[in-house]
Design a binder for these strands. Structure first.
Lengths: 235, 235
DNA sequence: GGTTGTCGGTGCGCTAACACACATATAGTG
DNA sequence: CACTATATGTGTGTTAGCGCACCGACAACC
């Protein structure tokens, strides 16, 4: 891919654009930094920007009326946050929260929509990414139904690891529990077992992945299904 | 909507097209009938057609390696089966099964893709529908995580009812269990309670919805979230 | 350098859903 | 009409995960 000579600024989706399309978008991309826990958009709320994470990871959460929550998907440097802006609905009934602090590139909604309407590689990429995200969401549904907390924790750790450059995750068990939609104690239990088996170690909000291979053995098939789809659709 | 004077053949998505766009598609739409349990496409398999159900209901299921399964979404006369054909991925890692026997309109993949590429109302509608389907899938994830089998059975019954013209569902508890990803006995138990409360009655594969309002009281918020999004996006 | 808040560990009782085994009833078929 | 498939009901024991309560340990901050 000699087209990938341009500087993609760390977002792998943008890096797949042909050089000319990327250059025409570049002036409209602004850097932005996100802190852990920051709410990027609220359920049903209008978004002024679409975000292409570079080092940040963003969780898509549904907030129940009774206050509990569950993650339906996650986006990092492989994708974007704000599919509703080009899919035509403008809003979605969930919240986007920063799961791992870091940076992103933002683009005004209007610019995005104009570029999308041109129908070039940009549109094709965004749609393929959306399909990958759908696979992630639907596989999350399956996983929530059929698999144990421990398996799901492995999946979550691997999904996060794939979107970072480091084996060190800054994340308390309490927050992981909110993402997975389980009790904090459930995460403590599962994480304890993974630590016993030497797959991870953790202290006070810092999780270290020691044995990625081991995690891949402990995880359910859901992880691989989703990963393979991302690789296939965004190759 | 004076544009809806044309005969939409029972699919509500197609019915939303302007008359001229619909007329240009019409020659490419062929009737097809589906029997209960028929597999429309297999996980990872190529589809030659996109389907617009008129009276049939189609379930999207993930089949686990160990043989168990879970539903990730459902499509009826409000939508279509085969989003991957215009999203660019061509295949998806799940199976589509006929959940309620009936008819659909089919269109060749090539025609679909050409029409989609034109970017008119047809494209806009398909993308909005896809967003609605995403909401359904992600809400299924949440529901699988946080709600009881009885609540999910209510949701499932209401989703089915909304896609039919009748209060009579032809569906065994065994099949419902496969869809929901729970044991058959679990469905028996939940259905028994709904019957005790006078919400439904059933005998050997025939479920009768007696009190739709009552079901809406018994169901979790997930049903309404999804229904509202469908209404909003496909108004 | 003590206080306070955050993070993780643990124990106990409870419930929803599981797995398995088997009983019963009905519809359809020869 | 008898037979057999299929559909549903039920019982027993097990388990994963929940809710709650509380503890200890570390960290940050006056």
């Amino acid at each position: 891919m000699s087209q990938r000579l341009h500087e993609p600024d760390g977002n792998r989706l943008l890096a797949m654009l042909p050089r000319d399309e990327y250059e025409s978008l570049r002036p409209h991309l602004k850097h932005v930094s996100f802190a852990l826990g920051e709410v990027i958009y609220e359920s049903g709320g209008q978004q002024s920007y679409i975000y292409f994470p570079t080092t940040a990871i963003i969780s898509l959460l549904y907030m129940m009326e009774n206050g509990s929550s569950a993650e339906m998907g996650v986006a990092g440097n492989e994708g974007l946050v704000g599919v509703a802006l080009f899919m035509g609905g403008n809003t979605v009934p969930n919240r986007a929260v920063v799961q791992s602090a870091g940076d992103a590139l933002k683009m005004k909604t209007k610019v995005l929509q104009d570029e999308f309407a041109r129908g070039g590689m940009f549109q094709r990429l965004l749609l393929r990414y959306t399909q990958a995200l759908m696979t992630q969401m639907s596989q999350t549904a399956v996983c929530n139904r059929l698999h144990t907390v421990e398996q799901q924790l492995c999946r979550w750790l691997l999904l996060s690891r794939d979107r970072l450059n480091t084996d060190e995750l800054v994340m308390t068990q309490e927050l992981i529990a909110n993402m997975l939609g389980v009790r904090r104690e459930g995460v403590t239990h599962a994480a304890g077992r993974l630590q016993e088996n030497g797959l991870i170690s953790y202290v006070r909000g810092h999780i270290h992945i020691l044995d990625r291979r081991g995690l891949e053995t402990a995880v359910c098939e859901c992880y691989r299904v989703v990963k393979d789809e991302y690789d296939r659709l965004l190759a």
